[in-house]
């Protein structure tokens, strides 16, 4: 465990918890894409298939449980909670899961480290995580005005991505045989998707104005 990895995990954890706390306290999910949240729940469910079979560390197991629990809780709130569900921008959040899930699944069947169910699902989860933010970014573009918490949520997710890249670079130079093309390329794609959002986020922060995205 290096400092970049820890910082990445912590910002990732904060992003999910900030969102869950927001939904729980203000009983609103305005501006949040249910499609993205469902995709993240699917990402965690398919990546952590090893949770009960391979023990890595207490830290690892606890983090996995928190990510699974919080992502499914968010989906539950947005779909089932009678107040929260009313604030959901259903008409604006029109991105189809199918268009992201199917290509990722096909890619995982072709590009994987081993052709076993667990390995294919693991590769699928990485490909899907890379693009799962797209429905959220589309929703941000459409609704234009972004409240602070939604902005912070995407900002924390972006920070998590950046720290993970530093973590890979660090591990590449410090650990022998640490080469993971699937993780790196999908991680890089994912980070690039945030670059555009970050550009506007920093501009609005620098000029001290409310974040607005161009059409």
């Amino acid at each position: 465990m290096n400092i970049f990895r820890l910082a990445g995990d912590m910002t990732h954890l904060m992003s999910v918890l900030v969102l869950l706390l927001k939904i729980h306290t203000i009983k609103s999910c305005a501006g949040i894409s249910l499609k993205t949240q469902e995709l993240y729940a699917l990402v965690f469910a398919t990546r952590y298939l090893d949770i009960f079979t391979d023990f890595i560390s207490v830290y690892n197991t606890i983090m996995k449980l928190i990510f699974l629990g919080s992502s499914f809780s968010i989906v539950w709130y947005m779909r089932r909670h009678k107040l929260v569900r009313r604030s959901y921008d259903k008409e604006q959040d029109t991105f189809r899961h199918f268009f992201l899930v199917l290509p990722c699944l096909l890619l995982a069947l072709v590009m994987n480290e081993k052709f076993t169910f667990k390995e294919v699902m693991w590769a699928f989860s990485l490909y899907l995580e890379a693009v799962a933010i797209l429905p959220q970014l589309v929703l941000l573009q459409r609704t234009k005005n972004i409240d602070n918490l939604t902005g912070q949520y995407v900002f924390l997710l972006g920070a998590y991505r950046a720290f993970y890249i530093f973590n890979w670079i660090y591990r590449y130079f410090t650990e022998p045989h640490y080469v993971h093309w699937i993780t790196w390329i999908s991680g890089l794609v994912q980070t690039l998707l945030y670059a555009d959002f970050f550009y506007y986020y920093f501009n609005s922060w620098k000029n001290n104005v409310k974040l607005h995205l161009p059409a």
Binding site: D9, H12, D50, I56, S57, N167, E175, Y178, V179, T183
Partner: peptide
């Protein structure tokens, strides 16, 4: 060599 350490990341 085969890596077994990849799944220590979240």
């Amino acid at each position: 060599p085969q890596n077994n350490d990849k799944k220590d990341e979240l």
